[in-house]
């Protein structure tokens, strides 16, 4: 699966401090550790550390690229910040993220094409995030057709059906599994299916256990990408094992090591 490493985010106080002081050391340390842990993308989110987010994103991209060759995920809700990140990135990046409504897709899909980037689209529109299965799948289908129309291949499109914290609505994880299954039938080949995994366990105890249990269930239902804590070894092992059990890789006694190397 594609593991999008979440730790370089201005919400974390050490990252926030580093961004304010423009201190590359903690950022590059996180970048290296996450790359070694098996990250497919390193997510960069400047958070609310500084007023000039555009400049902060450019700086983050530059210092991260000095530490690792792993592709970057440019994480912002602001178009200008995303553009600044894409411009600074040396290798094709991932845009995280845009809403699944036509007016946003009209901007972000061509943007992804222009920068040879991949794109995460959330199943939300003007009405917000549908709480049911059908509403999410409907938006997902609209996203896929908009992407295909513009010529963005499904292999570069990530549908994110938006995972809520478990203590907000406990029916949601079960719904999500069905959403994953249905998204897989929208196109052939299907788009990637992504979630922000750590959202699920916000405000709970046993966060790691909650995250990895859901992740294995989700992989069985077709999820193949997550913004997640790649430094959580148990979580990474659970993902690798789940994929092996789903016949995504051939078993060997060293199967845990193989994916990570």
């Amino acid at each position: 699966m594609l593991a999008i490493a979440e730790r370089i985010n201005g919400m974390f106080s050490n990252v926030k401090k580093a961004i304010i002081k423009r201190d590359p050391v903690p950022i590059q340390d996180l970048a290296r550790r996450q790359a070694e842990a098996g990250a497919s993308f390193i997510d960069l989110n400047v958070g609310t550390a500084v007023a000039d987010q555009v400049e902060a994103m450019r700086w983050l991209v530059e210092v991260t690229q000095e530490a690792t060759k792993t592709p970057l995920s440019i994480d912002s809700q602001k178009l200008e910040v995303v553009k600044a990140g894409l411009e600074a990135a040396k290798t094709p990046a991932l845009i995280n993220s845009c809403k699944g409504q036509p007016e946003d897709l009209e901007i972000y899909v061509p943007l992804a094409l222009k920068y040879n980037a991949s794109l995460i689209c959330l199943t939300m529109d003007k009405r917000g995030i549908p709480q049911d299965i059908d509403g999410r799948v409907e938006i997902a289908a609209n996203i896929v057709s908009a992407a295909v129309e513009h010529g963005l291949e499904p292999s570069r499109l990530f549908i994110d059906p938006v995972l809520f914290p478990i203590n907000v609505d406990q029916k949601q994880p079960g719904y999500m599994l069905e959403v994953f299954r249905q998204i897989r039938y929208i196109s052939d080949p299907p788009p990637h299916i992504n979630v922000g995994l750590s959202n699920l366990s916000q405000g709970t105890k046993e966060r790691s256990l909650v995250n990895r249990t859901f992740l294995t269930m989700a992989i069985a239902a077709g999820l193949d990408s997550a913004v997640m804590d790649v430094l959580d070894k148990d979580l990474m092992y659970a993902a690798i094992c789940a994929e092996m059990l789903m016949n995504k890789q051939i078993y060997s006694d060293s199967f845990l090591k193989v994916v990570r190397s």
Binding site: Y251, S252, D253, S254, K257
Partner: peptide
């Protein structure tokens, strides 16, 4: 045995 083949290659 495909599993052992992979394992011996890794070793």
């Amino acid at each position: 045995d495909v599993n052992i083949q992979k394992q011996v290659n890794i070793l």
